[in-house]
């Protein structure tokens, strides 16, 4: 009985998280904020629903397979988001007008295939600090 309740709650809350993800993808203003919801909420929702499957069947093989899928989702979702975000920035996808700061601007050299580290490089920061100390 209690197992059925846990399973039902996991199922419905997972579906609700996925609904939140879809709503965010429709409502948010630019690509990067949309990617925030599409990666976090959608993967979390599918993980909750898979947990519901594991709780419902409760035998070892199903639990093992579910853990495998969950591990796989957690490993691959950030990698996919990283690749899409990077290529979208390279293609010049416009950022939302409410964006506060963009430190990636003018850091790419596409012809040379180099992304420079700019003023936040730890080495240059240490240099600046030693300069400040000596003066």
């Amino acid at each position: 009985m209690i197992r059925e309740w846990i399973c039902a709650i996991l199922l419905v809350s997972g579906a609700l998280f996925m609904f939140v993800a879809a709503l965010g993808v429709v409502r948010f203003p630019d690509l990067f904020t949309r990617m925030h919801t599409a990666t976090k909420s959608a993967s979390f929702g599918s993980v909750l629903m898979l947990c519901a499957v594991a709780v419902y069947f409760g035998n070892a093989w199903v639990i093992f397979e579910t853990i495998l899928v969950i591990f796989f989702i957690f490993l691959t979702t950030p990698v996919g988001a990283h690749m899409i975000g990077r290529v979208a920035y390279l293609l010049g996808t416009p950022l939302w007008e409410g964006t506060v700061i963009d430190e990636l601007q003018d850091r790419y050299h596409i012809r040379k295939r180099v992304l420079e580290s700019g003023p936040h490089d730890p080495a240059t920061q240490a240099e600046n600090k030693s300069k400040m100390d000596t003066t």
Partner: peptide, 18 residues
């Protein structure tokens, strides 16, 4: 970073310092 509150990693600089 991609999975924690409101942050999403985009790219690593070529010399891997930023």
């Amino acid at each position: 970073i991609t999975m924690t509150p409101g942050t999403l990693s985009l790219d690593v600089s070529t010399d891997r310092r930023v």
